[in-house]
Design a protein around this nucleic acid. Structure first.
Lengths: 110, 110
DNA sequence: TATTAATACTACGACAGACATAGTACGACA
DNA sequence: TGTCGTACTATGTCTGTCGTAGTATTAATA
């Protein structure tokens, strides 16, 4: 019985998950990792290194932008917000997902 | 508009596709690639190198076994058949797929 | 008859995303 | 005093995919 998901399977959708969580409001690493955890009922736990390297990649591609802000407790955080290009990319990935799902399901029995 | 699927998305499911196609009968590289092509309505075309390296990996893991056989036209082919371990692995991947799908869909809007 | 297309692969190297491991730094709490 | 939670950064490795190239045979086509 498959009980947890190997992240290799998810490869290519970590970016999409992050962008989705930034659609409504800017956020930062630790919060996003907790959101992914709770949204998926602990079924998917993104690795810290995976998450932060995704931030770097997404920013380099112009899909998110970052700014520093002090939290209530005086700690400094790096926040990220989605850019218009990021929103566009997110929509593309959603379309791609539907296609991908259909393709893979041809090979799934039951 | 996403028109074709980047294989990066599919990463981790090529093995599953191959195993699926071996469930009913042994087959070989060229035929499998054509079957994937037609089953997916040309939407997914597996690369030759990807396919043959998958064979190597799957055989090394004991999920498939190979034998040589001459085709009707006298040409030699390497056929692969799925092993019991391969069938088991295939079933696991199917279960994992359902889980994965559910997880990802939390992050897909519309 | 010469050339091209289809078949059926193998070899080699590069790349990118995921991940392991480790370390930093600060505050809260016991 | 030490551990836990927070919020990261650095570095290097691994693996599946993919680009490129080459080999060899047969079938079809000009």
């Amino acid at each position: 019985m498959a009980e947890s998901i190997s992240s290799d399977v998810i490869r290519g959708y970590n970016d999409t998950m992050i962008l989705f969580l930034l659609l409504d409001a800017p956020s930062y690493g630790y919060e996003i990792s907790k959101q992914i955890r709770s949204l998926t009922d602990e079924k998917y736990l993104i690795k810290e290194t995976t998450l932060y390297s995704a931030f770097t990649r997404l920013e380099k591609n112009g899909y998110i932008s970052s700014f520093s802000q002090e939290a209530a407790n005086g700690k400094k955080r790096t926040y990220y917000s989605i850019t218009p290009a990021g929103e566009e990319y997110y929509r593309t990935k959603c379309e791609e997902w539907h296609l991908t799902k259909d393709v893979i399901e041809h090979f799934i029995r039951n």
